[in-house]
């Protein structure tokens, strides 16, 4: 069995006073694409934030590359090779496209430099046309491309995408999915949260479904396709 790159075990997290995650086990292997699914309010974003240390788990353990990282500062956890594309995209209004990319450029594990400024701009030609525009002048789709491009500039082992295509026009969505598929081909592991379950069924290697802060399903796409009643029961599809 391959060793997971990131693994959460028995994680309990709170959002303010409410108990959101009730002992969640979650792992992502190196190079694996995992779809994290579930209805709104089931704990998907909280689980991602717990992995990143943005939300500190009250109980349980998060390991990155085998090292226990529970409760460590977010910047330390992220530096182990994780890039985060948050819901809402996290673009800085007063920085230009160029600055977003250059600000975080760094080598990955073992000095890997697969992704640099030029490759990101090749991947997203739209960004190349808008290098001197400020964050708040970009469309939603451009912001999402920039958020993904910025994430790639850190040469991550694992890319976390929360609401990958939310609020985007169909054409832009297709573009984002194309890029995510291309990223998958390069061997970067990804965790994807998105409303579009059908795309995820084809794209992801494994599917994890959260219901009320616990894992209701964890398995491969084929098993999920063969048993559509699971999706119907858990996310109402």
């Amino acid at each position: 069995m391959t060793k997971p790159f990131i693994a959460a075990q028995g994680v309990h997290s709170y959002y303010g006073p409410s108990h959101v995650l009730h002992g969640v086990d979650f792992r992502v292997n190196r190079g694996e694409t995992v779809a994290l699914m579930g209805r709104n309010g089931m704990g998907k974003s909280t689980l991602l934030k717990s992995l990143l240390g943005i939300v500190k788990p009250r109980d349980g353990e998060v390991r990155v590359g085998g090292t226990v990282m529970t409760g460590r500062p977010t910047s330390r956890i992220v530096r182990m090779g994780i890039a985060y594309v948050p819901e809402g995209r996290g673009i800085f209004p007063s920085l230009t496209v160029r600055e977003h990319l250059l600000m975080v450029a760094r080598r990955g594990a073992e000095g890997r430099r697969d992704w640099d400024y030029h490759r990101v701009l090749e991947t997203f030609p739209r960004l190349a046309e808008r290098l001197d525009n400020f964050g708040h002048h970009l469309s939603g789709g451009e912001q999402q491309m920039l958020s993904i491009g910025r994430a790639l500039m850190t040469n991550p082992e694992l890319l976390i995408l929360d609401e990958a295509t939310e609020g985007l026009a169909p054409l832009i969505r297709r573009e984002i999915w194309r890029v995510i598929a291309a990223i998958k081909q390069t061997g970067i592991a990804t965790v994807i949260v998105d409303k579009n379950a059908h795309v995820l069924l084809d794209l992801a290697d494994r599917h994890v479904i959260l219901v009320k802060g616990t894992v209701a399903y964890d398995g491969h796409a084929d098993a999920l396709k063969a048993n559509p009643e699971i999706l119907e029961r858990t996310i109402g599809l």
Partner: peptide
């Protein structure tokens, strides 16, 4: 400049705020 907008996002990019 980024930190003045959103320090949590800066931290999530791996910067020691």
């Amino acid at each position: 400049r980024a930190g003045a907008c959103d320090r949590d996002m800066v931290a999530a990019l791996g910067i020691d705020v």
